[in-house]
Amino acid sequence: MTATTKPWKRYLLHLRSAVPALCLLAALIAPFVLEGFTLYQLTKVAVYAMAILGLNLLTGYNGQFSLGHSAFYAVGAYVTAILMTTSGFTPYLAIPIAGLAAGLAGYLFGLPALRLEPLYLALATFGLAVATPQLLKSSHLEDLTGGVQGISLTRPEAPFGLPLNSDQWWYLVSLAVLVCMLWLARNLIDSRSGRAMIAIRDNPIAAAAGGIDVAGYKTATFAVSALLTGIAGGLSAVVVELVAPDSFTFNLAILFLIGSVVGGVASISGAVFGGAFVLFVPNLSEDVSKGLAGAVYGVFIIGVIFFMPQGLAGFAQKLKARLEK
């Protein structure tokens, strides 16, 4: 750093490495200063961020497209709800099991799907997204899924007599799960497995010639992606206290995709930006213009893609790089 560095810039430079810690601190204080609906929204940001993180691993790092992640989210949500209501499971056990169930579904779907070219894979997953709400409503599964009505459940209060209300507690649980997932995903990407995933995305033939089992990694990535999204779905069931077929339509899959691209598809932190974007920007658009909310939202999306081609996370990275110059 030279002597000519402006004081404010030096100050920012000191600050930059503290940014993640400050964000986490703010997130930890949030439940004690925010209340009710705002906190509920933040909880949903965390939940969406998990699902988007799952999609980022698949699409951003492994180059496989999915328009069907709403289906894995639904598996997570329904398995959690069913285990809790019919078998009396605690959510702390039901959600991990639901995540594994979604991961298994992802693995089984990934097995045939990975042989498909990207466009066909997108279409196949789209089929999955379209079929899911119908299947959930189907009279054959009605006893299990509650049909059109879905299943309502009650989320437990904070354990151990902690002085937290249920909103605060479940916000903190979601936050903790998200932070764990971000850490695990970062480790994974920076490892041998992550390099194999990226190598397959960049050049599958060279990856295979370099000893990487392309089919095996693609299926495994599909499973991991679905697992993260399934856990998000399970948490959402508990937070919302209701699962219903129409919450898991194709629109939800598109929501994840928007969050993924806008946040930065090949990025870990981008999932958080993406989760916040898909939750807050539609409301913001409505504040701008009630009648044209959809159009304003569209303009926001186009704006981000146009001005920040690497997504919000890429933009933040660029700012940081400029500061360090």
Binding site: R195, A196, I198, D202, A206, G210, A266
Partner: peptide, 21 residues
């Protein structure tokens, strides 16, 4: 040339170590 074009030089080489790990 079939390099992994979005990786650094080091990561390309590390990726080559896949079968040896």
């Amino acid at each position: 040339l079939a390099l992994f074009h979005n990786m650094t030089v080091r990561d390309n080489i590390l990726a080559g170590g896949h079968p040896a790990s």
